[in-house]
Amino acid sequence: MKGPRSGRGVRPRVVVLRTAGTNCDLETVHALQRAGAEAERVHVRRLAERPADLGRYAILVLPGGFTYGDDVAAGRVLAVELRARLGDALGEFVAHGGLVLGVCNGFQVLVRAGLLPGGPAALGPEPQATLAANESNRFECRWVHVSVRGGGSPWLPERDEVWPLPVAHGEGRFLTRGPAVLEALEREGRVAFRYVDERGRPGGYPANPNGSAHHIAGVTDPTGQVLGLMPHPERNVEPWHHPAWTRLGVRAAGEGLALFRRGVAAARSG
């Protein structure tokens, strides 16, 4: 198998994986293209037929949606499919420096497959974390603030920042299998996104919209190459995406674009 290096270049190649129920693929492709990537939607079935094709890309993105209806649990059925059909290819992809991003349902898939927070070594049926039903027991769509941890991942800015991003999910409550997993994530600086209030401080509902432990909204694997988050950066890309743009004025771009730009830049130079 060729390494993901072959997907690099001025416009790094990105595969946006889709299947039945994926529904944020088009806007995710748009955000990636705005960030300078060459993004392509590929059905998981086609990739599973030729797992080595993953090596043609520099970045793999699992977009939001309700894959297979989120039946059983959000992202579970696709996670089983990835493990069974693309597990080895995924491990190799990350080992060769490939970047992986999972947003919302994509994050749920990565966690259920074990790729987050443990990385390729943890791919398997014994996940160390989960995204459980929101404490409210309801799907909720709202804008939140997240503090972004600077550094530590090619996806993230160099310095800590606070971004407004929308969440839209019913199962986003990040919990781990025992406190040790949580402590390790904190110790190793792998909590990439944390729900905060507009002043940047952690708070209860609705600042933390789902009851996540330690207000966690997104994490990386030990290498930092694999990132998953519940909020939707691809929905804060255009000047008019921010919910208060009619008060703040029209900006050049939304904060979410920075994430895609960082990832694409890393793939370009890496």
Partner: peptide, 16 residues
């Protein structure tokens, strides 16, 4: 009601 609906998906919302 409104919060239970995803009114942001497809990334096209300008006035919510």
């Amino acid at each position: 009601v409104v919060r239970q609906y995803d009114h942001e998906v497809q990334g096209a919302a300008a006035v919510r």
